[in-house]
Computed example of a mutant assay.
Amino acid sequence: MPTFRLPDPDRRWSQVSLDAGPVGGPCRFVDGGWERTVSPDGIQRLEFAFGVGRRGRRVLHPDYDVVETDFGPRSVWHRSDYREPGWLSAPATPGRLTTLELPSALAAPLAVRMWTPSGLRSRDPAPVLWCHDGSGYLDHARIDRWAGSHIAAGTLPAFRIVLADAPRRMQWYSGSPGYLRTVRRALGALQERFPSDAPVAVAGASLGGLTSMLVGMRDPRVGVVFSQSGSFFDARIDKSDNAFRWFDRITREVAGISATTVRNDLHIGMVCGAREGNERLNTRLALGLMNSGWDVAYERFNDLHNWTAWRDSLDPMLPNLLREAWSAVG
């Protein structure tokens, strides 16, 4: 079991904790340093920092690599059997990014970026993958590189990726009726401008995973939902998030998912970290949907709630879902 140790020979700090999500907690002072031992079960890599002193100032481990996250830099530990996805170093079709303004049910048009692989013209029919938290998928999960590698290998047809961000993320991605109507309008405008002869795929992580599920359940044009560590809050088993402003709205929407009439043409993929806080919520929803007759694939990965985990868990589930839904196009 890995032991994370922060040297403190002069006992400068009165207390130290390991900031590592559900496996973190207080450290013990042992022989001139602060230590915490973590079980490696269900974890192949761990992003962490130390919180020092009463204010919990973050300090990185001097001996580990550093990864940039949405919450600032973190040290990162890898188990000996961890491997990065092969597509990161495989040949990849390049692409270009363009900015679009799409119609919205909100106060302003929805600004998105669209990735298009080289060689695909605007008038060429092609499938669409819509990604919530598009900047995260682009900058941290390397979704453009992932797509380019599959296109170059011939395992997926040429397709477009819509990278959508939410300036009011917590509000919009918590079951906002206005945002859900906006996606519906935006998809209609996209199909008018860029022809597509395949079902739309929608992907997202955390609250974006929840939002992708809600979009897919409401729009018959959507043929694939891919949710990573979705925030499927359930008041019966989730007490840690009930202070979140939009908690009650989310729980109502999650209850509504289970009651939605089954669609045989919607392929749902769900992945979640084996030891992260959302695991019970994802497992409960996935099993409930399967028992109701939905086409659901569910897997747990050996990491926690972070962008590298979501990058690493794109394969094999997402391309399998896309091939199943897009089989008529290439």
Results as ranks from 00 to 15, higher is better:
T98A: 13
P85Q: 06
D81K: 04
A108E: 15
R57N: 12
F50D: 01
L110F: 11
G51V: 06
V66L: 00
S75G: 10
G86E: 09
F48D: 05
P94G: 13
A49C: 11
V66Y: 02
L110S: 08
D63G: 13
G53C: 01
S75L: 07
F50L: 01
V66A: 03
R79T: 12
R96A: 13
V67D: 13
P73D: 09
G86V: 01
R55V: 11
F50E: 01
L110Q: 15
R58F: 02
A107P: 02
V76W: 00
Y82N: 02
A105P: 04
G56R: 06
P94E: 12
L106A: 10
A107G: 08
L100K: 02
R55S: 14
S75E: 04
S80W: 09
L88A: 01
T93I: 09
P103K: 06
V67F: 11
W77I: 07
D65C: 07
T93S: 14
G72E: 11
W87F: 09
F48V: 04
A105F: 04
R57G: 08
P73G: 07
L106M: 15
P91N: 08
T93F: 03
V59F: 05
P91C: 02
L110A: 08
R79F: 07
L102C: 10
L88F: 00
V67K: 08
P73Y: 02
E101R: 14
Y64D: 14
F50A: 01
D70R: 15
S89V: 14
L88C: 01
W77H: 04
A105V: 02
R83P: 00
V67L: 14
W77D: 05
V67M: 13
P103C: 07
T69E: 10
W77Q: 06
G72D: 11
A92F: 00
V76A: 08
W87A: 04
T69V: 08
R54Q: 14
L100A: 02
V59A: 10
L97K: 10
H61R: 03
L60V: 10
A90N: 00
L102K: 02
E101K: 12
D81S: 12
G56Y: 08
G86R: 05
P109S: 11
R57E: 15
E84H: 13
P109Y: 08
S75W: 01
R74E: 11
A92I: 00
R79G: 15
G51C: 14
R54K: 13
S104P: 09
D81H: 11
R83V: 10
L88N: 00
V76I: 15
R79S: 15
D63Q: 14
P73H: 05
L102S: 06
A92S: 12
L106V: 02
A92K: 00
S89G: 11
F71S: 14
R55L: 13
